[in-house]
């Protein structure tokens, strides 16, 4: 049984059946990609996993526990961290502070009134954050305001913020959307590096097949709200059903 088990999930918006009978299992320490053409229901599925939407039918089990009806911060505390399409960081804070905040969240929970402790006396947290930054080669930028970073660095910082929590599952929502080819390649390299250097389970929602072929251990193809096939990347490439789903986008599927 996988760390994430999606069973028979369905979601309807008015007359539109966005998801129906979605079954998905993400095994521990694998990279699982969920791809599909526009409107396949990728974002809806993701929002059901993180607590932003509640599916009409079915269940989502994470680590044996249901995530349905829980708030985003509660789901994060269960061990799911999320990377956004456009990096979501604390722009007014320094890079180091950005990475310290998730450390505090892991140690102290959703709320703690630590009003009379000193940030600079938190040696453990500082060390943890600095280690993470040096792992991702961002330590020299630790004292810059995060809002002044380049787009690529913001993505890198967001990854650092998620990884420092040592999540049981890292969710990535189209991590390369809207990026130039060079930036896309950098991001893929970063993800490969992360996969190679630490035990991690990732679920990547992606439109662009290129991004995930070299990265994913398994790929689920979503079309019109329901999984079409699930297989290893080599078998996905040649699958005629997948070509059909991406019809008109065959170049993407190459």
């Amino acid at each position: 049984m996988g760390i994430l088990e999606v069973k028979n999930v369905g979601k309807r918006f008015g007359g539109l059946q966005a998801l129906s009978e979605v079954n998905l299992s993400v095994a521990e320490n694998t990279v699982h990609a969920i791809i599909g053409p526009n409107g396949a229901g990728k974002s809806t599925l993701l929002n059901c996993l993180v607590g932003k939407l509640i599916p009409d039918t079915g269940s989502v089990l994470f680590d044996g526990k249901s995530v349905l009806g829980r708030k985003p911060h509660e789901i994060n505390q269960m061990g799911i961290s999320r990377v956004f399409q456009t990096p979501e960081i604390f722009g007014d804070l320094t890079v180091l502070e950005n990475v310290m905040i998730p450390c505090f969240a892991r140690r102290d929970g959703a709320f703690r009134m630590h009003a009379f402790e000193r940030v600079k006396a938190e040696a453990g947290i500082l060390e943890q954050a600095e280690k993470m930054l040096s792992d991702l080669r961002m330590l020299e930028k630790a004292h810059l305001h995060a809002g002044t970073l380049s787009r690529g660095d913001k993505r890198r910082l967001e990854m650092a913020m998620c990884l420092v929590q040592e999540p049981k599952l890292l969710l990535l929502d189209e991590p390369t959307a809207g990026m130039a080819r060079a930036d896309t390649n950098n991001t893929i390299d970063l993800l490969k590096e992360i996969k190679a250097t630490r035990p991690i389970t990732m679920a990547i929602i992606e439109h662009d097949m290129h991004v995930v072929f070299s990265l994913a251990d398994r790929i689920t193809v979503l079309a019109q709200g329901t999984p079409l096939v699930e297989d290893v990347p080599e078998n996905i490439k040649g699958n005629p059903k997948v070509r059909e789903a991406y019809l008109g986008e065959t170049q993407d599927a190459e």
Binding site: K71, H73, N76, S81, R82, E88, F90, L93, I101, Q165
Partner: peptide, 26 residues
């Protein structure tokens, strides 16, 4: 308060509440 982790969280509230939620903070 300004120099405490609590103060840092308050600045995080101003900066990005969405990120806070998805970082496990309320």
């Amino acid at each position: 308060i300004f120099r405490s982790p609590f103060g840092m969280m308050l600045r995080a509230v101003k900066s990005n509440q969405n990120r806070m939620n998805y970082t496990g903070l309320s």
